[in-house]
Each structure stands twice: as C-alpha cells, then as structure tokens.
Simulated scan of single mutants.
Amino acid sequence: MTAAKLPAACETKDDVRSEIDRIDQSLLTLLAERHRYVTRMAEIKTDPHEAFDPVRIEAIIGKVRSRSLDLELDEDQAELLWRTLIDWNINYEKGIIAARKRAR
C-alpha cells in the first residue's frame, strides 16, 4: 500500500480520486466496526422504544458539531451525516429487538 498524499501533494484528478478511495475504504471499515457495536446494543436492549433516546442523540450531535469545528469540517454537514446514521441505527435496532420479542 502506498503512503497517503496530502491534498496539496495531489497533482491530478486521479491522485485526488485515489486518496478519496483510500479514505472511503477506511470509512467503510470504521462503519462496519461501529455497526457491530450497534448490533450488540440491540441485543442488550429489551424494548424497541429503547432504540430512540433523544437525550443521547442530542448529546452525540453536540459532540459531533464541536469536534467538526476542531477539524475544520462544516458542522452542519457533519450533523446531517450523523443524524442520518443515527436514524438508520435506530431503525435497525428496533427491527432486531422487535424480531427477538416476536420469536419468544
């Protein structure tokens, strides 16, 4: 595997695309890891309503917005991405919990 190039070192569109592809692979790996924890959380929770925790959600969004600013990332875009991820996870957890309850 070749070393990562800094954005300023990318001289062509192919250079930039190659770096984006590298980052996308890392993001997918991290999302898969995160998903395993979401799955475990769904196994621990006992009621589908537990999947939606507005206090926890807003705490997460607050951290994401703050950390985004520290990383010079638009906090509105980061929030949108995280809210989408959280919504997917809530629906996924609800499905697992409900299916387990039906199987009893």
Score class of each variant (00 low, 15 high):
residue 44 I to C: 15
residue 50 E to Q: 04
residue 64 V to H: 03
residue 73 L to Y: 12
residue 46 T to W: 02
residue 71 L to P: 06
residue 56 R to P: 01
residue 55 V to L: 12
residue 42 A to H: 14
residue 64 V to A: 02
residue 61 I to Y: 10
residue 69 L to N: 10
residue 73 L to H: 12
residue 58 E to F: 04
residue 46 T to G: 14
residue 46 T to L: 15
residue 59 A to Y: 05
residue 56 R to T: 07
residue 42 A to M: 09
residue 33 E to C: 05
residue 60 I to W: 02
residue 66 S to F: 11
residue 36 R to S: 15
residue 54 P to D: 05
residue 70 D to Q: 15
residue 61 I to W: 13
residue 68 S to C: 09
residue 38 V to E: 04
residue 40 R to Y: 14
residue 46 T to I: 11
residue 76 D to M: 09
residue 38 V to S: 01
residue 53 D to V: 08
residue 54 P to S: 01
residue 65 R to G: 02
residue 57 I to S: 04
residue 49 H to R: 11
residue 36 R to W: 02
residue 71 L to M: 14
residue 30 L to Y: 10
residue 67 R to G: 04
residue 65 R to I: 02
residue 46 T to C: 13
residue 44 I to D: 05
residue 61 I to P: 04
residue 32 A to D: 08
residue 45 K to H: 08
residue 72 E to V: 06
residue 32 A to N: 11
residue 45 K to A: 04
residue 46 T to A: 10
residue 48 P to L: 02
residue 41 M to V: 08
residue 30 L to N: 08
residue 76 D to R: 13
residue 37 Y to G: 08
residue 70 D to I: 09
residue 77 Q to V: 05
residue 45 K to Q: 14
residue 54 P to I: 05
residue 67 R to L: 11
residue 51 A to K: 00
residue 29 T to N: 12
residue 69 L to C: 14
residue 53 D to N: 10
residue 73 L to W: 12
residue 76 D to I: 10
residue 74 D to P: 01
residue 48 P to G: 07
residue 30 L to T: 05
residue 64 V to E: 02
residue 34 R to Q: 15
residue 53 D to G: 01
residue 69 L to Q: 07
residue 70 D to R: 10
residue 57 I to V: 05
residue 71 L to Y: 03
residue 78 A to E: 01
residue 29 T to D: 06
residue 42 A to G: 15
residue 31 L to I: 12
residue 60 I to Q: 00
residue 52 F to P: 00
residue 58 E to I: 06
residue 48 P to Q: 15
residue 33 E to Q: 15
residue 61 I to H: 12
residue 62 G to W: 03
residue 70 D to C: 15
residue 37 Y to A: 08
residue 29 T to Y: 09
residue 46 T to P: 00
residue 52 F to R: 12
residue 34 R to M: 12
residue 42 A to E: 04
residue 53 D to I: 00
residue 73 L to S: 14
residue 62 G to F: 13
residue 64 V to Y: 00
residue 56 R to A: 10
residue 53 D to T: 05
residue 76 D to Y: 11
residue 70 D to L: 13
residue 75 E to K: 11
residue 63 K to A: 15
residue 51 A to V: 01
residue 39 T to Y: 01
